[in-house]
Structure formats: structure tokens, C-alpha cells
Write a protein that binds this DNA or RNA. Structure first.
Lengths: 275, 275
DNA sequence: TCAAAAGTGTTGCACCTACACCCATGG
DNA sequence: CCATGGGTGTAGGTGCAACACTTTTGA
């Protein structure tokens, strides 16, 4: 495992927790579609895989996810939720690694490669891993996908047009979406997909993208304003030949306060807004 | 770590995945209350802790949870859901272990104890652990709590009268309940808390226990029958001086079929029933 | 005949859907 | 003054909460 592996070489010495990994589903929104940031690996053979990594001994798993996200998104404060553990005994990267090595023999059969270390890294990587799935919600306007030196490319793919990914990564994305749909009414986290301020139509479009379903245009504002967590700001003059829409901002402090005061007992909050 | 530790001695040789544990919240229902099965440890000092354990290299995490559950409940087929990962870097049992050893010096300062192994086990146990939380839903009528040789007692506690447990275990129970409340309408798993057949009043009582909230008596049957997953059986003559209620059975096959056919897209299923 | 609990019907309210209509803006 | 899209109002339907009522059973 030469050159390209250099950046993660001696991975077995890195003071990681063994056999535990973190996988990140980075979700963004643009042009009425939810999108996932997916890197393509810098090897021959068209391998796509979710951004992932390992957990240092002295690091919260949340912080590990944040570190991995920052490398690809460049931003530090990311909305993050842990949503699932992949814990199957036969869950390992051996099939993928073998396919990958087979199609990149010139890299891996190099007699100059540090044979011992390669073997150790191969064994380390292909053990059974318990993987913790996180999803992140980011404002695509603030993020320029950053290639690491393991990536051939890194791009946003609409959730319904994902490339075939390695291992169980397509399934992981599907699970992340299910969880988002199930919990968005409790967590009110969809706003993280938009800029600081947004119009009513934009947030409605986001909800419609999340649920792949249209909502009534007159009720949506009523329902979402009833939550009492949006501030209405000045109007947004776009230069278009129509009425200027109002801008809104999600007041996270107010939401947290309502939660803390117990006025929002999760079981009977003034939700759902997504029915 | 003598005598009582014998049953888990040489834990470091057991081919477990390192620094990963599983904690189980075993939920039952009786007398209008949700209850949790909580063992009390067989040491001086009143230590309660959730049933937990470790994951073998060749074992699914789900199966590890099942194995741990079977030891305490005696039953093999248990409804199980993974709901959270505790991943804080400072999450370890050192504070608990030190308190426990302090109050049980006669066991741990015994010069006959195998000093080396004790030390190794102490170090193994008190490392930082990433813990996977599962909750189980069981029919209390089918379960007799089984003490393992680590338990002084094992009992059902109402969720609102739990003893103070070690580490973050009280918080884990709270999170399990939040998850149950959030997902019960999608998973329709509350039936696992009752026997095979049950009356309408019983399942309503279960929902009321889960949500700590009353539901309208006339609407509840309508809503839950609308789901089209309950079979109405013969009446149940109890000998009581009142009308005999019908018995119902949850038809899991029908539910699975509806899910598989896509008639129940999770996002807009004919739910919720718990509003 | 009565008490107890199961089960059903009625009324009012809240919210949702569908549709129509008004408003602000720039050309 | 018109086209465009934001924003709001109305009418009909559905479902839920509260309450009252009927039914079934054993004593």
C-alpha cells in the first residue's frame, strides 16, 4: 500500500479505538433536491464511499465525526446526529479491498512497497468493524467540497441518483434519510440545510424534498409559524417582477428554551408539521 | 477480583471486541406501568446497573444483546431495537469501580487473589468504552427475572421509580423511552409488551403508559383498527360481572407485508395513532 | 334488577385540502 | 397595466376530545 496510502500509513499505531469506525452522510439541499456529498476514491475502478474514519482514544465519537466532516467540508460547526450502528459480525472491507487491489496491482505489487507494513495495514483495515453512522446537515452555499489525497473527486449527488457505493454505504444513506424524516418534526433541524435567513417558500421546498411530497401552500406557513421558533425579518427584494417575500430566521435559542422549559414535551409538541 | 469475578475472569482473553459494550434496557408492562428490569450487583454498597456485556469477534452486536438478554430473561426471541451509542471519550467505569472496590475491600484486598489477573481485569474494565444501547420489549408474563451470579437481586422497577444506577444508566433508560415514544407509531412494536392476545383496553393502557397520557376511549379503537394489522378473535369471558371484551391479535405477517408492498411508506403511513 | 366495564353515538372544535382571490413588484 | 409569484381567505371534509348513552355479563 504505497504512495496514496502514505497519508494513513501506520494506521495501526495511531492510537485509534480498534474495530470501530465512523461513517458520515453529509446532506445538503439545492435546487429542490436533497444531496449527499460523496467522494470517489483515488484508485482505478470507480469506487465511491462515504467519508469515514476512526476514533482516537481520547476523542468523543461525535468529535471524530466532526473531524472527518471538517476535512471534507472545511467548516467546523456542523449539525450532526448519530443515527445507527452497523454491527454485523461479517461487516468488513475485505471484498472491497480485494477488488480494489486487484484493479490497482501496479500500486500494491510494487516490490519497493514496505511489505510488512502493507500487510499490517491490510489486516488492520479488513478486520470486522463496528461502524457508527452520523448524518450532517449543511448549508451547501457555505461548503466547497474538499478533496483529501484519498479522493479522486468529491461531489454532491441527489439522493435519488447516488452512485453505487462500497460495502453497505447506499443502505447507510437510506437509513440516514429515514431517520431524518422520522425525527425532523421533533428536532426541527431542517433549517440547517438553508442559509441563516430564508423565505417561506424555501423552507417549504426543503420539507418537500425531505419527504418527497408536496404540502399545501396556505397551511405550511401557518403550521411552521405556530411552532413559535421563526423570526420574521425584513422583506427580500430580489429584483424579480413579483411581490417580495419575507425572510425568516430560525431562533435556536427560543427552541432550546421551549424544550428546556418542558413546554415542548417531545410526546405532544405542537408538531408534526410534516403531515 | 476474587470469587464473584470468577465467572468473567480472564475477560481480556475472551476474544471480545475491545472497548465496545452493549447495554440493554429491558422494558415490560404490568399494572398500567412501564417497567425496567434492573439487576442489583452482588457487592456491598447498593449498586444497580443495566444488564450489559461485550461483543465477541464473530458475533453480531444484535446477537450479543440477545445473548445478554437471554441470561436475564430466559427467553430467546425478544423484540430488540438499537437506539443509541454512548461515545464520550471520558466514558469509563473507573469512578464506579473504585467506589465499589472501596466498599468491598475484603474481596479485593485478599492476598490470595490472583493479583496480576485482577489488575489486568481492572484495567480492561475501566478503559474508555463505546457502548451500544438496545431496548427490548418483553411480555412480563413470560419472563421470570433470572439472577446471574453477578446479581444480588433482579427486579422490575416502574420507569418513574428507578433506583439510582451506575454511570449514565439512568440517562440511557430515559433515552430508550424517548426513542420508543418517537418510533412506536412507525414500528407498531408496543404489542410486544403484551401476551399473544389482548383486549382493546389493554393495548390502550399500554399506549397510555408509554406516553404517560390518556387517550379518548371511543377513538382509540377506531385509530388502531384502521391500521389493519389486528385480528379480532372470540370474546374473552373473564367471569367478571360485565360485558366480555373482544380479544385481538397483532398480525405481524400482515404488517410486514404492508410495509414490503410499500403501502406503508414510513413517511405517510396511516399513523400516528398516538396523538 | 343492579353494578361494572365494554362499546358506540353525538356534538363541537381544530386542522387539513382545494380552490380562489388579492397584493406587491418590475417591466 | 400586465405577468409573476408571494401571501391570504373561504368552504367542505376529516378526525379528535368530551360527554352521554346503550349493551353485555354475573351476582
Amino acid at each position: 500500500m504505497k504512495s496514496n496510502m502514505k497519508s494513513v500509513e501506520s494506521v495501526s499505531d495511531k492510537n485509534y479505538i480498534e474495530q470501530v469506525s465512523v461513517e458520515c452522510v453529509i446532506l445538503g439541499y439545492h435546487d429542490k433536491k436533497l444531496r449527499v456529498m460523496v467522494p470517489k476514491l483515488a484508485f482505478k475502478g470507480d469506487f465511491w464511499g462515504l467519508p469515514g474514519g476512526f476514533v482516537y482514544q481520547d476523542e468523543d465519537t461525535d468529535d471524530a465525526a466532526r473531524r472527518i466532516l471538517q476535512a471534507r467540508t472545511g467548516i467546523k460547526d456542523v449539525y450532526l446526529e448519530q443515527f445507527q450502528v452497523m454491527g454485523k459480525a461479517n461487516r468488513n472491507s475485505r471484498a472491497f479491498m480485494d477488488r480494489m487491489i486487484e484493479q490497482n496491482t501496479e500500486l500494491f505489487n510494487n516490490p519497493l512497497a514496505e511489505g510488512q507494513r502493507s500487510r499490517m495495514d491490510y489486516d488492520w483495515f479488513t478486520r470486522r468493524f463496528i461502524s457508527i453512522g452520523y448524518y450532517a446537515l449543511v448549508d451547501m452555499n457555505q461548503v466547497i467540497p474538499q478533496k483529501t489525497d484519498l479522493d479522486a473527486s468529491i461531489e454532491w449527488y441527489p439522493v435519488d441518483e447516488l452512485p453505487p457505493m462500497i460495502m453497505d454505504h447506499n443502505q447507510i444513506v437510506a437509513n440516514a434519510l429515514s431517520t431524518l424524516r422520522l425525527t425532523v418534526d421533533q428536532k426541527l433541524n431542517a433549517f440547517n440545510l438553508l442559509p441563516e435567513t430564508f423565505t417561506m417558500q424555501e423552507i417549504q421546498d426543503v420539507y418537500e424534498a425531505i419527504f418527497d411530497k408536496r404540502f399545501a401552500q396556505n397551511n405550511f406557513p401557518k403550521r411552521i409559524l405556530r411552532l413559535n421558533v421563526l423570526d420574521r425579518l425584513e422583506k427580500k427584494y430580489t429584483g424579480a417582477a413579483n411581490k417580495a417575500p419575507y425572510l425568516y430566521r430560525f431562533d435556536k435559542e427560543r427552541y432550546d428554551r421551549l424544550l428546556a422549559e418542558g413546554d415542548y414535551p417531545i410526546a405532544d409538541s405542537p408538531l408534526p408539521i410534516s403531515t
